[in-house]
């Protein structure tokens, strides 16, 4: 039985009452603004990139510039100005409804907080998969066995987080990110190497390749970040694409983005009826 001592319980909460305890930092008026031990105005502003500080704030660790530059390139890959993409579509709807840019962009960000696409939640699952796959391989499983075990969960279909994608086969962003990685001096690590092997198998067996999430998840796993850290780093990853699509429709006449006639809605519900029939 749990018999909490009431006085202890109240004392615990009272200790937190009216106080903020921060492991992150804060503003000491007259002295400076601090983030994880760095004086932001002296140590960070002007000498570190925005992405370095973003990662510092999300994880508590200041990354090397090359790591931040790689993440920044990944952000660009996930922020396309195509209003057919779901989060961008939300931004464009915000524009056509004449919302503020912040409301539309925030709504698009919420839309991309999805297990299906977007680089935030998907990174958690993608990293969990490739980390487990590497453990499985180390314990003796072949790539074929690893893939077959995943496919079994979906009746033999190649539904593996980080591989295949909606709308298109292949992913042009991988080639771009490989170029970025090479230019920044990164080598192919254990997770990424395995990700390529898995891709080769999937291409051969199913005609499906890796997507940007599979590539990024493996690359980031090699960097040593956790899935939760990447979720936090990626919280606003689609933002600029959403804002672009918001701007596109906001600058045009209201309701001008994909206007719908009544006939553009397919109704398949109950037939016409009267309340007196059923109430």
């Amino acid at each position: 039985m749990y018999s909490n001592n009431r006085a202890e319980v109240i004392a615990y909460w009272d200790n937190l009452r009216h106080k903020i305890f921060s492991k992150k930092g804060g503003w000491v008026i007259g002295k400076g603004v601090f983030s994880h031990g760095f004086d932001m105005m002296k140590d960070l502003v002007g000498s570190k990139t925005y992405m370095q500080v973003l990662i510092l704030n999300a994880t508590g660790r200041l990354p090397e510039k090359c790591v931040a530059d790689w993440f920044e390139a990944r952000h660009i890959c996930l922020s396309w100005p195509d209003s057919r993409i779901w989060c961008n579509h939300i931004g464009a709807l915000g524009g056509t409804a004449q919302t503020s840019p912040v409301a539309a962009t925030a709504a698009g960000l919420l839309g991309a907080d999805s297990y299906a696409y977007g680089g935030s939640q998907t990174a958690i699952k993608g990293m969990a998969f490739i980390r487990q796959a590497l453990k499985d391989k180390s314990s003796g499983l072949s790539v074929r066995e690893i893939v077959e075990a995943e496919c079994k969960k979906f009746k033999g279909k190649p539904v593996i987080m980080g591989y295949a994608r909606p709308i298109a086969k292949g992913d042009e962003r991988i080639e771009a990110m490989e170029r970025v990685g090479e230019n920044l001096g990164f080598k192919v690590g254990k997770h990424l190497s395995l990700a390529y092997e898995i891709e080769q198998h999937l291409v051969k067996e199913f005609g499906e390749g890796m997507n940007i999430n599979g590539f990024s998840s493996a690359f980031i796993a090699d960097l040593g970040y956790t899935g939760e850290e990447v979720y936090r780093i990626s919280a606003t990853i689609v933002a600029s694409g959403v804002t672009a699509c918001y701007s596109d429709s906001k600058d045009k006449p209201a309701n001008g983005f994909l206007p719908l006639q009544c006939a553009d809605v397919e109704y398949s519900g109950k037939p016409d009826r009267k309340i007196s029939d059923n109430k």
Partner: peptide
């Protein structure tokens, strides 16, 4: 590496369903 990016040509609904 990097299989060529191709459109799946999936068929999407022309109308909003409800």
């Amino acid at each position: 590496k990097n299989i060529k990016t191709e459109h799946r040509k999936e068929i999407f609904s022309k109308k909003i369903p409800t």
